[in-house]
Design a binder for these strands. Structure first.
Lengths: 105, 105
DNA sequence: TTAATAACTTAAATAATTTAAGTGTGATAA
DNA sequence: TTATCACACTTAAATTATTTAAGTTATTAA
């Protein structure tokens, strides 16, 4: 009856910032905290928490290091993460198709 | 730099249940509370609140009536609501296209 | 040698969502 | 006939999520 399982939507990738992080990491490869912060136009605390959540559910991994005597954490999307993102976007695709096909009737 | 403005995503339609309500009303026209509840497989309180939020931002309207001596509230998507939904889906479309075109490289 | 900035982390406040309880009316059963 | 149950919501409480603000450690500039 419904085109997709709305209740089953993956809320881990659903949130705007989360979706932004996943997209950036998927397309532009590993990125560090500062780059993500600028790209997503967000603030430290919020970004940190979202990254933490994504890491918790193993959609991304992080590696801390010191570069030029400054800390630098680099984030990378995992294969699980790629699958989750693809899966989420597939739902959106189905939804779009459903709404567009309904329009024609 | 980003394919879409993640921060600008319309959070009013974004949530899973909200998206479900909007989709149902868009495709199957006016629906009553009970029908929506069944279709979205949700509980009274939650549905009621989400409907309230959508009404607050004028994406839907409601009309209360008594049918067979029982209360019956019917919800209908507004033209503002249709635009908001279309707009939201357009963002998702852009995002999908961006990710797919990046994959080819 | 204070500031000021960078790169986070942690905690507090706010907002969103879900779960649970409450209301009024009609129908059903004892 | 009166107690119980179901329907269609509403309201309030509890939980979870998100954002805003403050704190930490180190490092460079004034």
């Amino acid at each position: 009856m419904n085109p997709i399982d709305f209740n089953g939507l993956d809320t881990a990738v659903h949130g705007p910032i989360r979706l932004g992080i996943m997209t950036a990491l998927q397309v532009d490869g590993p990125l560090d905290f500062t780059t993500l912060k600028k790209r997503l136009d967000t603030v430290d605390g919020s970004l940190n928490l979202h990254l933490g959540k994504l890491e918790e559910c193993t959609y991304i991994t992080s590696k801390k290091a010191f570069v030029d005597l400054r800390p630098k954490t680099t984030y990378r999307i995992t294969s699980t993460g790629r699958k989750a993102l693809a899966n989420y976007l597939q739902s959106m695709k189905s939804l779009i198709e459903y709404l567009e096909s309904a329009k024609e009737k």
